[in-house]
Structures are given as C-alpha cells and as structure tokens.
Design a protein around this nucleic acid. Structure first.
Lengths: 355, 355
DNA sequence: CATCTACATGGAAGCGTTTCCGCTTGAGGG
DNA sequence: CCCTCAAGCGGAAACGCTTCCATGTAGATG
C-alpha cells in the first residue's frame, strides 16, 4: 500500500486544495475561505478560485476536513433490515430529514443480532456521526443493555447524540433520546373500536412478552376490556412472533383446537393479520362476514387485504429522531417523546348485533 | 467553533492514540502497529496497549485514518427511496454484501430527481467511498447523461468504482459496471406462458418508452408474440407509469372504452397489476375466472393478490454490484452483467380453450 | 499629508493517524 | 568472543484541510 507520492501509479493523484491554490495564484487559506463561503473576499479572487475548482474538478476531501475540526455532517442509522416495511419507512423519514439538513446518512443493518448491532455501532462511532439512531427492538439481556448504556455515555462524551426509535429507554440516567409512538393508546383505541360495535370475545394474536412493542399493545388491549367492563379471558391471548407465517400458524392451531369462541381478532401487527387471514380462508371463513379482524401498523399488506388497522407515523418517527438529535444543544440530555396514532377504517370489521 | 485545545469546554476530549501510547508507556507508532495487527510485536507490549485501549475507551478516528492514506472501507448507494420495495431489496443486498466484506454503507436518496442525484453523488465523492452504486431509473436527458459520464470518469480517477444497477449503460467508453437482470427474457417467458395456455389477445399495461426497464419488458412481450406467430396489435398496448394508481386508471379507462377485446393482461410490474385488479373488481370482473393476469417483479403485493409473475433477483442485484465493485482490480474497467429471472406460478392465470 | 481603520490575503500550526527509517537489543553462528 | 541479523520499538514526516495570527493595502479621517 504505497503512501508517499507514488510516481507513476496509474492512479493520477486527485486535485487537492493546494493544487487549486497554485492554479488560481492564491494561497491555500484563501481557497478554503472562499469555498466555505463564510468570509469576505474580493469578487475577482472568488472568480479565479471558482474557475480553478472547475478546471481541476476539485472535490474537498471529507476526511481531511473532518480531521481539521469540522464536525462531519452525518447521521447514522442502525436497523434490523431495510426490507421490512416498518424499518424502511422509518429509515425513509430519517433520510428525508437528514437530507433537508444537509446531512449524509450512514446505514447499518443488524439482522436482529445484538452482537452485530454492537459492532455496527462501533463503526459508526469511528465515523464521528452527529447522531446515532437505533431503530427497532432487539431481544436483549441485561448484559447487552448495560453495554448499550455504556456506549450511550461514550457517545455523549464524544458529542454524538444517541436516539432510540421505538425501543425502550435504557434507564433514567442514560443520555439518550427516546422516540416512540403510543402503542398502548393505539391498541386501546382499536380494541375499543371492536367493542363499540358489539364484539365481546376478541382473540389477541401476537407476542405476549419479551419485546416491548407488543407488550404495550397487549396492555392496551387489556386496558380497553377493562374500560368497557368486558371480562378478560387469558385463554383468548395467543402467543407467537410478529411474522406472517406465525400469524398463519397461530390461527390454524386455534381453529383446530375446538369450537370458535370469539367473534373478532386483534392481530398485534398487520403481518400477523395477513397470515391469520390466509388460515381463515383455508377453513372457508370470510372476513368480515364470519369474523372481524383488525391489525396494527398500516403497512403494505393492510391496504391490500382491506384491513382496518392502527395507522402509525413511521416516517414521522424517523424525522423526529433526526430533528431532536440535531437540535439537542447538549448531546447527552435524555428526552422521551411519544407520537400519536390513529385508526384507519377499511372493511374488515362487521357490526355484531348484541346478544 | 473552538478547535485548539479547548481547556474546559464541557466536552471532555476524546482519547487519541497518543493518550493510549502515554498510558501504556509505549510510542504512538507501536500502538498503531499493534492495533492494525499486521506487524510483529511482543505479547507483553500488546497486552499493555490493549489494556490502555480498554481503560481509555479508545476508538480510532476514521477521518484521521482516512487521511493518513488508508482507503476508507465503505460503499455508497444512491436510490430513489428506501420505501419502494424494489429499491429496498436491492439496498438490502448491498448492505449484506458490504457487511460481509467489512464495509460501511452510506445511503443517499434522490426522490427520482436528477439534480438531487448529482448532488448526492457529489457528497459521496467527498467521502471517497470505494464504490458508488446507483440503483434504478431516472428519466434523464442527454445533458444529464453527459454529466453522469464525466462523473464516472472522475470517480475512476479517484479510484472509486461506479456501478449502475438496473440502469442502462452510459456509453461504451464510460468506466462503469452495469448490473441488470434480463427484463426482455423475463417478459418473453411470461408472455409465452400466457400464450401457451391458449391466450391470443393479451393486453399490455405499462410504460412504452422513456425508461429502459419497461422498454425491454415490452420488447420481450412483442418478441414472444412473434415467436408464437400471434399477430401484434398496437391497440393492445396501453401506456402509463409504473405505479399502482396508474394501473387502476389504465384499466378503468380501457374497460370504459368499449367491448373487452382481450382475455389476459400482462402488467409491466406488480404494482400496475394490483391497480388493474382493483379496477376489474369494481366492474365485477374476477381473476382468473373472467380474465387472466400476470405481473413482473414478485414484490409484496404479488403474493397477496395471488399473482403469477416474474421473480427477479433483487437482492442478488445488490450483492453482485458490491462484489463486482470490490473485486474489480482496476476501477474504471467497464463491465456488463445480466442476471436471470424465473416465473413464479400462482392462481391468476386460467387455461383458455382454443377457438 | 500623516494616521487610523477595515478589509483581503498569506503563512503556518495543528487535527489523529499510518508508515518509513533508523536505532537498540538479544540471540545465534563463526 | 566478536560480528551479523532480525525482532521490536521510537521518532518523525506526511496526508488535506481549517483557522489563528500577522501582514499588506486601500480608503477614510484628522
């Protein structure tokens, strides 16, 4: 790996600011000032410099600039995968806001693996990004959470802001911004919707513990039952992960198990709802004629299967994350922001006449 | 913006390699060598250094390293938006391969705007990424293409590899790698599928000119007609953009226009197919009983609406792009790679008895 | 006409890292 | 026992940029 002036390395060295200065007949300092645009300069000099820049096709070296003390304008985002619609939407929001603020966006994926997450954050740390945005839940043990907290502190020391998007706070004294939407309120609202049109026995399909998002969704479901003075039957809560295949499995097994003792279904997300719908169709059951169903998220499958669901401000989440991170004067101050949700009504719910 | 040693700036300066050296009682050079891991060193020294690194929570500064001549390990990807499933899948492939190769991934979005694309590439250029991967079609005039060609040359000079993913080559002497899948062959195959089960009048829904991808899809459609000696009727080609709403519009207008003179539909992508399906349903027409339909891409809506379609190796596209870019010894060599597709059969096509 | 001020510019230090070159040290061969 | 040699390490230059400080020059003021 040759480093000193390689004489004839095929690679014709890139133009540097010094080349521009020489070419324009001015000093390096002048070129730098003119390009940064924040200092006074004579129009004639400016013209000369601009011409040289054009002629040499000069592009400033971001590394040199970063080293020289200018905080690199970039935000980093870490997600499970960019395919998953939820992450994609949040990432899109981050992108948009970052671009609006003239920031570059560095993306890392973890595939849901805590180790890879840590490694990825390490890379981001080297890049000195202004903000590191972590999106989504990862099943993590206490050790992982402790390591994360120490990373949060290290980032704060380095002047970067850590943002957790839709992930539980790490603790009261950990310097991080947390942005979530109100899962509990959303679940409460949509469950109430089912209850208010006459349903009394509502099957819950989804993760019951472990992750926080579904946790708070089931909490909203239970709270709504209480609010409406409908007895809570734990037998109506079916446990499974938040994927389409799981929705299919949960529904199938439930239908196989015995007589149908529910009139509506609350799927903890739209993917589960889509899977459950497939299982229902296999049994000849139709939505909403035979069974009503609602979901959560309002992501792509929802509209295609005409699902009434909870619309969630995914992109807002990303935008808010960036905005808060860049505006936080002192990186290291903890904040907690909760975004609202609302119900989008399609055709998957039927009114059920009272008993 | 203080730059010199800020005495009491609240921001406790980050540990540098010099701090580590001092702390471990060795020289800066030794620390660097040990951390790079490619030089011999005494085990005892190594241990001392590692301890200091841990105690000071030292993280190397990527900018300083980049400046000191180590090529930053990163690839840049520019897409229209990360929401769109096609881009998301390609981006995921890029991510995966980049991560496997220990590279960071910088992402920029353009929203389909050529100006923003150019600006984004400029930023990427500053970062000195090893590769710049452009995904997707942008409607561009000759001037834009010329500017792009000159950027390609500039990147090559800087030792970065430009990769075009699913976008037409810029010209014979432009140093860029082009990775595409074979749209024409795919369209030929799926049209042949319709023809082989008896359909003779097949409506084409999609963009007829301008973008290259649909261009080659319609070419495959026409070629298949020729292969099967079925007369080509330009009246069966309906023009519109590649979006769901457009599919709906094209279908609706066609149905309003007069008697139905086709038995099957080839939608240039799944989104159009989904929109067309909505319009058919509004008219009480069912798939496949009344009309057969096929799409292209096999992206999310396809499975939900049981569409027979052409499956395309989106993620492979991204992975291949990264692999080719990183393995290209001399950035600047032009290459052209074509990836294959295959048909996935669902239930949207009915056999049609011959006349 | 001398002096002051404000502005435009140049010189140079320093950012944190890598790597070249040269020095010391201890082991092994003659 | 001396010499050679390699391993291990330290000093220092270089990467390209920004900004502090100093310097020169023009116009305004006394």
């Amino acid at each position: 790996m040759p480093r000193r002036t390689a004489p004839d390395d095929g690679q014709p060295r890139l133009a540097t600011i010094r080349d521009v200065a020489r070419h324009a007949g001015v000093s390096v300092a002048t070129v730098s000032r003119i390009l940064s645009g924040t200092y006074p300069s004579a129009p004639s000099t400016r013209a000369k410099v601009m011409r040289a820049v054009r002629e040499l096709d000069y592009v400033a070296n971001a590394h040199a600039r970063g080293l020289a003390g200018v905080r690199p304008k970039s935000v980093a985002i870490v997600v499970n995968s960019v395919i998953s619609p939820h992450y994609a939407h949040v990432a899109q929001g981050v992108q948009e806001e970052a671009a609006r603020e003239g920031r570059l966006c560095i993306v890392g994926t973890t595939g849901g693996d805590p180790e890879r997450e840590l490694a990825t954050i390490g890379l981001m740390r080297q890049e000195q990004a202004e903000a590191v945005i972590l999106v989504g839940n990862i099943v993590a043990d206490d050790a992982h959470r402790e390591r994360m907290a120490s990373i949060a502190r290290a980032l704060a020391r380095a002047g970067s802001q850590l943002v957790l998007c839709g992930r539980p706070p790490l603790g009261p004294d950990v310097p991080a911004i947390v942005v979530e939407y109100d899962n509990t309120a959303g679940a409460h609202a949509i469950t109430s919707h089912l209850l208010s049109v006459g349903h009394r026995r509502i099957l819950f399909l989804g993760r019951r513990t472990g992750y926080t998002t579904p946790d708070s969704r089931i909490a909203g479901y239970r709270a709504a039952l209480t609010t409406h003075r409908v007895p809570h039957d734990p037998g109506l809560e079916v446990d499974g992960t938040m994927e389409r295949g799981e929705g299919h499995r949960m529904m199938r097994e439930r239908l196989d198990r015995g007589p149908r003792d529910f009139t509506a279904i609350f799927a903890a997300n739209d993917l589960i709802a889509a899977g459950a719908r497939d299982a229902l169709r296999e049994r000849g059951l139709r939505i909403p004629d035979d069974i009503s169903m609602v979901g959560f998220d309002d992501l792509p499958p929802a509209a295609d299967i005409d699902l009434t669901t909870v619309q969630v401000p995914h992109e807002d989440l990303g935008r808010t994350a960036v905005r808060l991170a860049l505006n936080s004067e002192t990186p290291g101050t903890a904040q907690h922001v909760l975004l609202g949700t609302h119900i989008v009504t399609r055709t998957s719910v039927h009114h059920r006449p009272g008993p």
